[in-house]
Amino acid sequence: MKPFTTLDALAVPLDRANVDTDAIIPKQFLKSIKRSGFGPNLFDEWRYLDHGEPGQDCSGRPQNPDFVLNKARYQGAQILLTRDNFGCGSSREHAPWALEDYGFRVLIGTSFADIFFNNCFKNGVLPIVLPSAQVDELFRQCEAAEGYRLVVDLAAQTITRPDGARISFDVDPFRKECLLNGWDDIGLTLRHADKIRAFEEKRRADHPYYFA
């Protein structure tokens, strides 16, 4: 996994609540057996005016000029501002794959759906939960000022706004460590292989009907 330490990047405000993973990456793109190449189809139904199909070259497709990601001032954004319950619905990891492939490394919102939240950390994408007053203020500032950039420092757990204000955020220590170092979860877990084996043997003895 790509490590995440700090990011100084343009932010884009996606002012909708309950953005589901079907909207983030529609189902026709889930037929891929790869984990890369989903970026051009991120938010496909909102981003383009035509219907997208897998394998299509997206460069010539008609873009929806009203969709915020298509606005010139937000090109190159790597930080997505979101509202409540972002990433709800399907567990498809194609959603963080698409966000990451597009270029997003940080998502800031008031709440994220559980499975999506987990999936982000497995892909070097940092979802940050802030109180709604702070998210409202970020939306306000971002919409008001072109070229609005934020500096995210994972080690310090801070977001610095252009006006110098510094916002702290929470992150689980274990997830933070993994993300800062780009550690592979599986490798970490296998350090406990003996413990897993011992647990499994005891379980097999106590509950043989689960091991038929």
């Binding site: 498809r92 990891e93 689980d172 979860d185 599986i186 499994e200």
Partner: peptide
């Protein structure tokens, strides 16, 4: 019973465990 992402599918296959809070 939990829904999990694909990285977790791989993790469960490789380790028979899931990282959870």
């Amino acid at each position: 019973a939990h829904g999990i992402g694909t990285s977790e599918v791989e993790h469960v296959m490789a380790t028979q465990c899931l990282l959870q809070k």
